[in-house]
């Protein structure tokens, strides 16, 4: 068990659950109103990363683990996934341009 876990009871998890619920409802509402595409994507990605941080940080106790563990998880997944996408994204755009014109 994580050494730095606060001694508070179960309430912490249900507060996080409520925050996740609110974020989900906001995301679904935002998706159904007519916002500019770029603004919509930014809002949704931001909310997605907030939800992911809450789950990893509090439910998975990463916030209370040693910083080195949080870093290998963060870099291991997020940075590698971002690098993977950024490496193939230009080709996707190139294919779109070739096929449309």
């Amino acid at each position: 068990m994580s050494k730095n876990l606060p001694t508070a009871g179960y309430a912490l998890y249900w507060r996080i659950w409520f925050l996740l619920l609110i974020l989900t409802v906001i995301m679904v509402f935002v998706d159904q109103v007519s916002l500019p595409r770029l603004a919509l994507v930014w809002i949704l990605v931001l909310a997605m990363l907030m939800k992911a941080s809450l789950i990893a940080g509090y439910f998975m106790h990463l916030r209370f683990e040693k910083l080195t563990l949080a870093v290998i998880v963060g870099v291991g997944i997020l940075a590698t996934a971002a690098a993977l996408f950024l490496l193939i994204a230009p080709d996707g755009i190139r294919i779109l341009k070739l096929s449309s014109g």
Binding site: L69, V73, I77, T80, L84, F85, A89, G92, L96
Partner: peptide, 25 residues
């Protein structure tokens, strides 16, 4: 945790590939 990282990369691969499909369509 190491298993979770590797399994996370599996889904990262799927989603990056999906992003590629969205960009090229």
């Amino acid at each position: 945790w190491l298993f979770i990282i590797t399994d996370g990369l599996l889904f990262a691969g799927f989603l990056a590939s999906y992003g590629f499909a969205r960009l090229s369509s």
